[in-house]
Simulated assay, not measured.
Amino acid sequence: MPSNVEIKAVVRDMGFLKERAKELSRSEGTVIHQQDTFFNVEKGRLKLRRFQDGTGQLIFYERPDMDGPKLSNYSISLTNDPEGLAKVLSDALGVKGIVKKERHLYLVGQTRIHVDSVEGLGQFMELEVVMKEGQGVEEGEAIAQELMQQLGVKREDLIVGAYMDLLMAAKSG
Rank of each mutant, 00 (worst) to 15 (best):
L107W: 10
E62Y: 12
I76A: 09
G94H: 05
S90G: 03
R49P: 10
G122S: 08
G134D: 04
G134F: 05
Y74S: 06
S3Q: 09
A92S: 10
D65R: 14
S25R: 12
V129N: 01
S25E: 12
L147H: 00
Q123T: 08
G56N: 03
L71I: 02
D116G: 07
K171F: 06
R103D: 02
R50P: 13
F39E: 02
Y61R: 10
T79W: 02
E138W: 00
D91V: 11
Q150N: 12
P82D: 01
L107D: 10
L24M: 10
A142Y: 00
T30E: 15
R63L: 09
D53K: 03
I59P: 14
G97V: 05
L17E: 04
N4A: 01
N4V: 00
A9I: 08
I76H: 12
L17D: 02
H114F: 14
L85G: 00
F16G: 06
K22G: 05
Q34S: 05
I143F: 00
D165H: 13
G134K: 01
Q135A: 00
A142M: 01
K87V: 08
Q34I: 13
G173T: 02
V118C: 11
R26Y: 13
A170E: 11
I32N: 11
V31W: 15
L127I: 00
P2K: 04
A21N: 03
G109F: 03
T30K: 15
L167N: 05
K132W: 10
R112N: 07
M66V: 14
K87W: 13
R112M: 04
G56L: 04
N73C: 14
L147M: 02
E119Q: 14
R49V: 05
V137M: 04
Q57E: 14
Y163E: 09
L17T: 04
D91Q: 14
